[in-house]
């Protein structure tokens, strides 16, 4: 069983839903990035998505674009991202997923990337602009290095595409809640329940929902939908991390802790609420 599958099984056993946090690699800088990883794992987050910065992130909104630019300006490369992950791997039990655009790892070499990702302790990889039906070669490579291949589904995915993506995904399916890019939104889309139902009808795979989720009440509505296994929160978290660059850090850490614990509590839902001591 992969680390991702183990954690998902544990969540199911505890009857609670998971919280995955997205971090842009080496943002705000390498030291604060690795420190953030160690802290959020303590605060109860169930998985980490580490974004490899790219010059042209077409699926990302302004908050993550800015974080990526900042990271790139500090000289972040694919190899540096993997090394940063390796440096914390032994200290955090949660699954680590690398989220990247295709070109940086294509340049690195897909095989080489899979090999080094595996040896640095990466559990899964999500390539934003590699749709599952163009991914045969990548899937074979990833399997050889025991990396889970996570793919996206979205409100525009047809039932046919849902079936195809479910077949090629391992670990879980990342369900994009909205038509659009990453970023904080006021409300969840009305057709989200229907989308989750359609995916859940086609597959028994675990489903994590992301894009546009920033508040505990939103987390509660998402995890209440039958078939979901948890949420991914990105832009809202990055926005808070940005404050580490300026203000007194202990206050920002407090704020971050409150934010993460609040989201996790919401994700525990009714099933796990009583367990909190």
């Amino acid at each position: 069983m992969s680390r991702i599958e183990t954690v998902l099984a544990q969540l199911k056993e505890k009857k609670e839903k998971g919280l995955i946090l997205y971090l842009t690699a080496n943002y705000p800088n390498e030291r604060l990035f690795t420190e953030t990883i160690l802290r959020v794992a303590e605060w109860g987050c169930d998985g980490l998505e580490i974004g490899v910065p790219f010059s042209d992130p077409i699926a990302d909104g302004p908050v993550i674009q800015e974080a990526m630019d900042c990271s790139l300006q500090q000289g972040t490369t694919v190899r540096k991202v993997l090394h940063a992950i390796a440096s914390v791997r032994e200290k955090v039990p949660v699954p680590i997923i690398v989220m990247t655009y295709l070109n940086p790892i294509l340049r690195f070499g897909l095989e080489q990337f899979a090999k080094e990702a595996f040896s640095c302790g990466v559990d899964g990889v999500l390539i934003t602009d590699l749709p599952a039906d163009e991914a045969d070669g990548w899937i074979a490579t990833a399997r050889a290095y025991r990396l889970d291949t996570i793919f996206l589904l979205s409100p525009t995915s047809t039932d046919e595409r849902i079936k195809m993506v479910a077949k090629r995904s391992t670990g879980f399916i990342y369900c994009v809640s909205v038509r659009g890019v990453t970023g904080v939104r006021e409300t969840l889309p009305e057709d989200l329940p229907d989308l989750i139902r359609r995916i859940h009808n086609q597959t028994s795979q675990s489903i994590f929902v992301g894009f546009g989720i920033s508040r505990p009440d939103q987390v509660r509505s998402v995890v209440a939908l039958s078939g979901t296994d948890g949420v991914v929160v990105g832009s809202a978290f990055i926005r808070l991390l940005k404050e580490l660059r300026g203000g007194p850090t202990h206050l920002v850490w407090d704020k971050l802790e409150k934010f993460v614990r609040g989201l996790k509590e919401a994700a525990r839902g009714s099933g796990g609420a009583h367990e909190k001591g």
Binding site: E134, P155, S157, V176
Partner: peptide, 10 residues
Amino acid sequence: GRFVPETLMY
């Protein structure tokens, strides 16, 4: 080919 996020595939 076609290298885009899932939302644009269909």
